[in-house]
Write a protein that binds this DNA or RNA. Structure first.
Length: 239
DNA sequence: AAACATGACAACCGCTATTAT
DNA sequence: CATAATAGCGGTTGTCATGTT
């Protein structure tokens, strides 16, 4: 036997919360707390809302310690650093920012930070190669990348350009940032059009990498082949 | 001034992990 | 232990305000 049924979805209101609903929820929670059960809360409080909706409204907007308004540069830096490290773990990232919610951080990333990074200045271009990125998307058109680099163990990279039919998804974006981080790149990303992104190192000195190892790391770190490769002539990449 | 595009944010949906029965 | 409710999370969508043509 389980518990009592959840809210009656046919009878719950959806959409934006009215000030009256906010007041009702706020005063109920300030008086009685959640009672450890969000599902039964709206009925007790006299709200025609789903418990999930009440919980979200309280956590993201009504709770007293919430911090509303613009993010500081310091907060931006924390979000970017953590995103590079752990990806889209918004609740974890939000936990490092007092008063911020996961939804808030997620929205801020999606609407501002992502673009800010994408539109950032490209780095140095002393060595550059470009070609099709190979993205970890399922589907028939998946383009498996080819590593045309020769067998030389190391070369110098300060810029990597990626061209593809579509923008990288957050998943891909995060992993790429992550890998650049792993490889000690201080990466900036420029986007010159809807469909072209440019990944460039902004480090003052060029990085020496073992290409074959780099490729392997991408497989090994995550246990899957991200199909991230590049096509380039030897002339493009060799000093 | 109207139509359309874009940005920002609130809210919902679906999934997974946890917990209660 | 099995089952179902619940909490929590991340992705996505909806809505409204503002900017641009």
């Amino acid at each position: 036997m389980g518990k009592a049924p959840c809210c009656d979805k046919a009878n719950v209101k959806k959409g934006p919360w009215s000030p009256e609903e906010d007041n009702t929820l706020r005063s109920y929670l300030e008086t009685y707390g959640t009672g450890g059960n969000w599902i039964t809360l709206p009925r007790k409080a006299g709200l025609k809302r789903c418990g999930k909706s009440c919980r979200l409204r309280w956590l993201n907007y009504l709770r007293p310690d919430i911090k509303l308004g613009g993010f500081t540069q310091e907060e931006d830096n924390i979000i970017c650093d953590l995103y590079k490290t752990i990806g889209s773990r918004w609740s974890t990232i939000a936990s490092k920012l007092p008063g911020r919610t996961d939804n808030d951080v997620k929205n801020h990333w999606n609407t501002r930070l992502k673009k800010k990074i994408l539109l950032g200045a490209a780095g140095k271009n002393d060595v550059k190669f470009s070609g099709s990125s190979v993205l970890p998307c399922p589907g028939p058109n998946r383009n498996v990348g080819k590593n045309y680099l020769n067998n030389s163990s190391t070369t110098t990279i300060s810029s990597y350009s990626m061209h593809d039919e579509q923008n990288p998804t957050d998943y891909q974006f995060g992993h790429l940032l992550g890998h650049m981080g792993v490889l000690d790149f201080s990466s900036t990303i420029a986007s010159s059009s809807q469909n072209v992104s440019s990944f460039s190192s902004s480090s003052s000195s060029s990085s020496v990498l073992d290409h074959q190892k780099w490729y392997s790391d991408i497989e090994d770190d995550h246990g899957i082949l991200l199909d991230f490769g590049f096509e380039a002539s030897h002339d493009d990449v060799m000093n």
